[in-house]
Write a protein that binds this DNA or RNA. Structure first.
Lengths: 206, 206
DNA sequence: AGTTTAGTTACGCTA
DNA sequence: TAGCGTAGCTAAACT
């Protein structure tokens, strides 16, 4: 769609859209990717200082003294270039995604396939991603007497907010609540217990 | 701390730490910043494919056939370089932050200074960023009879999660709950009403 | 060190 | 397309 390049320049950047952002003057690195996305990186931090999603249009000439403008539905980035330090094309830039392990999904699957190892209740039905009025329940077990077991799974350390999210589901469908994951904070476990919910420790296999 | 550079290379990347991530082989852009942070960018999307925060250590030589390793408390990124397409230093890279407008803080201030325009209750005290056990309350008004008015402010469209955050505060300090912002989702307004909380519409001035 | 939140969150999935 | 929730979220503020 657009030829990708990196530009290390002196100048200033203005963003207008969901917010209003001013940057510089200073030295920044501009990245233009295959998908038309744009990012302006400063000398610290992982996220860019300014950015714009895929299919941003580009106007202007990349040269000292020029202004280039990127646009995308209601958003604008204007870049005033004072000086160019280097300019390089990135041709054949790979669009591969990272193959990720240790996701929340893996923990959900582990609990699904090994339910008896983690829960006392014998359920005739175990479902994942059960849709409710206020969002999907990660794991829902149903006992023969109709009792529901509502499980909210977190891949990272569970917080008080996660406990309240569980509470939201339990109040919506009824039943017994469980928060599951590899780790939970002190405040969170206290909150969980005081509201009558259960903590289920589950680790990643690899 | 470390000299910043960009490296466009063919090769593969492995991350091990909070998760396990495999990338490539393919062409990627490696950024090493002033603060020692590292990011590996692919040809699409704004965020990097792999990354590591500030003060990452670096081992190895940047040359074809070599492996470079970045490390930081319990995390490792290994990069196998097959071929180098370009290598550039970014000297004097600016560390300026963006000067931002239309932040949540601005909405909080607007409500603070124009309280009677948005709330019926007459309060003798209005405070911002009131610390509680479970985090800070954006805006807290106190009536003469002691009734508290708890306000959670959002700069973007409010969600059910935001209602839960409000609920956490109201249940902590007691009183009447308000969610405030420019916009709110359908499920969120339903959740808000069903729990007896209020919606306050407030817009950015600029 | 632990906890919580803001963010132009970005991005993917589902209805 | 819009809404909703995850993320190796990141990074900052505060206890």
């Amino acid at each position: 769609m657009s030829r990708s390049f990196s530009l290390y320049f002196s100048g200033s950047v203005k963003y207008d859209g969901r917010a209003l952002g001013l940057l510089g003057p200073g030295r920044f690195l501009l990245l233009r990717k295959n998908d038309g996305s744009v990012s302006v990186h400063g000398g610290t931090l992982i996220p860019p200082r300014n950015y714009m999603g895929a299919k941003a249009s580009m106007e202007g000439i990349i040269a000292a003294g020029q202004t280039i403008v990127f646009e995308r539905k209601g958003e604008t980035i204007s870049i005033v270039i004072d000086e160019i330090h280097f300019f390089e094309y990135m041709d054949d830039w790979s669009e591969d995604e990272v193959c990720l392990r240790r996701t929340e999904r893996e923990l959900v699957n582990k609990l699904f396939w090994n339910w008896p190892d983690y829960f006392d209740a014998t359920c005739y039905s175990i479902e994942t991603e059960v849709q409710t009025e206020f969002g999907p329940i990660d794991l829902l077990g149903t006992e023969f007497d109709g009792t529901l077991h509502v499980v909210e799974v977190k891949r990272r350390k569970a917080t008080v907010t996660d406990c309240i999210q569980l509470r939201k589901y339990v109040e919506t469908v009824g039943g017994i609540g469980y928060l599951a994951g590899p780790e939970i904070g002190d405040k969170a476990i206290k909150y969980l217990k005081s509201h009558g919910y259960n903590w289920v420790q589950v680790e990643f296999d690899i």
